[in-house]
Design a protein around this nucleic acid. Structure first.
Lengths: 209, 209
DNA sequence: AAAACTATACACCATTTTGGGGTAAATTCC
DNA sequence: GGAATTTACCCCAAAATGGTGTATAGTTTT
């Protein structure tokens, strides 16, 4: 519809990569790389002036780490779309970046076309991700298939993890409070723990709930 | 590398769509639609025989709902990739499908090319999703930007939601137990609740933690 | 500079919850 | 028919919770 220019900012400490991206994007009519920085701090300082629609951002940067940078940027301009571009496929980093507010996460590859695709996808309201990243994200929703817990135990543990007391759980499951206790005793035994907190921690880590 | 044929099964109650997909996919050399069903139950019955690599599946089906179908299929053959193809963009359905074990979720659109893309992406180890679905998924990681809670309160509530007691929380934050209590009092007041369970419920619903 | 908010800490008190030890019947699944 | 699961009950002491209320130092905002 509208033929608005997409304003892009790049934050990347590798000058070659940074300038390469800028050159590539500027060669396309509807894109305008309004500024590019080596450090988050500088990008944040110029947020208002740059008025960018999209920020392409590396994570390992000199000074402030990219994760924190994302948080600060999103806090100031929540509607700004940030695409992480990094070599790291470490799942912890991926989730941290997404939690911090990134709208996309692509890994640096040889081909530039995926970068352009990502920007188009963002403009279309999507969330561009490399294949493996997307799979990680989707798998994070899925439970461990071979849980030692029975269906009922899992149900009880789920409610327990929502902070509910034995009494409330018993009401919600229409069973006796002492039965809930029995289940919890069995859960603790199976997970080799001795308290609610430990059980929940283990359950979350092993994706039992 | 290997020129293995990809075996595909379709579960879709709309015969026109089902046969359309089958025709399209069979027209491509490396794909083979080994079977197609109108009901989950039938697909599950023939899982072992079909030996499929990928299942394309609608969610609203006669008889067993697709979500349950996914669960059963994944339970039997965890490595089988299931792509949901539906008209529904309802976020609850999306998350339920992913939790049940779907590896992709695309919405029915006019163009067939996205279907082919999805299958290629699955084969490449990815998780194909329509733009809007991907965005929903990514946003599910992000917290509410305008939380009424302070940083510290959020921290306390986060630990509380992991089943930790006041004492444990105080130890982990290096503050006095009574201080934790003060924070929790304030949290309860701000969220207008009167118990841990209510606070956690509200916090999760409003994505404060 | 004043006001508002935030993080910290303490006291008292009744009630509820938790976790440990048992035991055992009914039901469902293989 | 036997194993696993779900259900239910007993005793008991320690711990946790939630509702009062007060207070001070530091930070941020106006």
């Amino acid at each position: 519809m509208e033929n608005k220019i997409t304003r892009i900012v790049i934050v990347e400490d590798n000058e070659v990569v940074k300038d390469g991206f800028a050159l590539l994007l500027n060669s396309i009519e509807e894109y305008d790389v309004v500024n590019s920085y080596v450090k988050c701090e500088d990008a944040i300082k110029n947020l208002k002036n740059d008025q960018s629609d999209i920020i392409l951002m590396d994570l390992e940067l000199p000074g402030m780490h990219g994760i924190e940078g994302i948080q600060r940027i999103k806090k100031e301009i929540p509607d700004l779309n940030i695409i992480v571009i990094t070599v790291h496929e470490d799942s912890e980093l991926v989730f941290q970046a997404l939690c911090a507010g990134a709208s996309g996460y692509i890994t640096k590859t040889a081909n530039y076309s995926s970068l352009l695709e990502a920007i188009n996808e963002i403009k279309a309201g999507g969330a561009p991700m490399s294949s493996r990243i997307a799979r990680m994200v989707v798998e994070s929703f899925q439970k461990n298939q071979d849980s030692p817990l029975t269906r009922r135990e899992t149900e009880v543990l789920e409610l327990l993890s929502k902070g509910k007391s034995y009494s409330i759980i018993s009401e919600e499951l229409f069973i006796h409070k002492e039965t809930v206790k029995s289940h919890i005793k069995n859960i603790y035994f199976k997970l080799q723990v001795h308290s609610k907190a430990e059980a929940i921690e283990k359950a979350l880590k092993e994706k039992l709930i």
